[in-house]
């Protein structure tokens, strides 16, 4: 049966990632049409994706955590830790494949630690991940005190090469977490995860294993941070114990701009991805506008604030369209 156009319009308006998608599209169009001298071509887009892959991966991971009503501010430090461990392993003669597997396992284990403390010891997520952030940052500094080192040439060649002759390999680092998330999301466990974020008490009374849902979210966030760290390591080809320090808030902000509710239970990873792309384009826009250095931060903050307000307004509208508190996962 053919549905009327209004049906699709309503569906589109309910899409949690819509504000971030619009912001991203608008920023691309502004850079393309309103700013002269910006040469947007395939190489520009590849370079843009290469730069922002780590934060996109983190945003996917942190979205899963936020959907359960939690938060993870340790992912940036975890990216730093994974980066220096990967570089040190390769510098000490470990082949890059086992080195990368070790790094991914370590990232998942770090996520599991966060998940276990939050789920089973009932320590608030902010406090838990603040503590582990310090631990990961300290470990990163222990593993590598000063930025430096080199990774295996094969890794760099792979990252700067092309898949099937035209695709930037960085797409892989984004696709793997997205596919895992989509599979999980479509399973009954995915629906349960949203239910935990909507109302933990009701979810528990409904027989949902709340702890297991949370454990998955934190482990998945760790995995995404590991993927992001590997992508970033391939990109910069070296180690830096402070590499991921500034990425936490960027990933969380991107998720919020992407329509994810900080109280949990509403949103999707697509929003976080678009949010990250918007962030990257915003930086380009500010640079291209040639704003005075002393007012750059102010302008960037104002545009971000507008973006967040827009995201919240559209989300509220979308939630009311869905009927009160009914959430996407229900």
């Amino acid at each position: 049966m053919r549905r009327p156009l209004s049906y699709y319009l309503r569906k589109l308006l309910k899409w949690s990632a819509l504000p971030a998608f619009l912001l991203m599209a608008a920023s691309f169009l502004i850079v393309k049409y309103l700013i002269t001298g910006t040469n947007i071509n395939a190489s520009y887009i590849t370079s843009f994706l290469n730069t922002n892959t780590a934060v996109i991966c983190m945003s996917i991971g942190v979205t899963a955590v936020i959907l359960t009503g939690g938060i993870d501010i340790s992912l940036g430090a975890l990216v730093s830790l994974c980066n220096v461990v990967a570089v040190q392993l390769m510098m000490h003669g470990v082949h890059y494949l086992p080195a990368l597997i070790i790094v991914l396992l370590m990232a998942v284990a770090a996520g599991a630690v966060n998940g276990a403390v939050v789920s089973y010891l009932h320590v608030p997520p902010l406090l838990t991940t603040f503590a582990t952030q310090t631990v990961f940052a300290g470990l990163a500094l222990t593993v590598m005190r000063v930025p430096g080192g080199r990774i295996a040439g094969e890794c760099t060649s792979f990252y700067y090469g092309k898949l099937f002759g035209f695709l930037p390999p960085t797409i892989l680092f984004i696709l793997v977490p997205v596919v895992i998330w989509k599979i999980y999301r479509r399973s009954p466990e995915g629906t349960r995860l949203y239910a935990v974020g909507c109302d933990e008490g009701k979810a528990f009374l409904s027989g949902i294993n709340v702890e297991r849902c949370r454990m998955f979210a934190y482990c998945f966030a760790g995995f995404c941070a590991g993927m992001g760290a590997i992508a970033y390591t391939f990109y910069v080809s070296a180690g830096d114990p402070d590499l991921g320090n500034s990425l936490d808030m960027r990933a969380i902000s991107a998720a919020v701009i992407g329509g994810v509710s900080l109280s949990g239970g509403y949103g999707d990873v697509a929003g976080g991805i678009f949010g990250c792309l918007f962030f990257g384009m915003l930086t380009n826009m500010i640079v291209s506008f040639k704003v005075n250095v002393f007012t750059q931060n102010l302008l960037e903050a104002l545009i971000l604030l507008a973006g967040v307000l827009m995201a919240i307004a559209v989300r509220n509208r979308s939630m009311s369209l869905k009927g009160g508190l009914k959430r996407e996962g229900q």
């Binding site: 001298g37 730069t51 922002n52 590499l243 500034s246 990257g280 380009n284």
Partner: peptide, 15 residues
């Protein structure tokens, strides 16, 4: 913020 710096410099070089 390395990511931001790379984004900024890419835009600058591109200009």
């Amino acid at each position: 913020d390395l990511t931001e710096q790379i984004n900024q410099c890419t835009a600058l070089i591109n200009s």
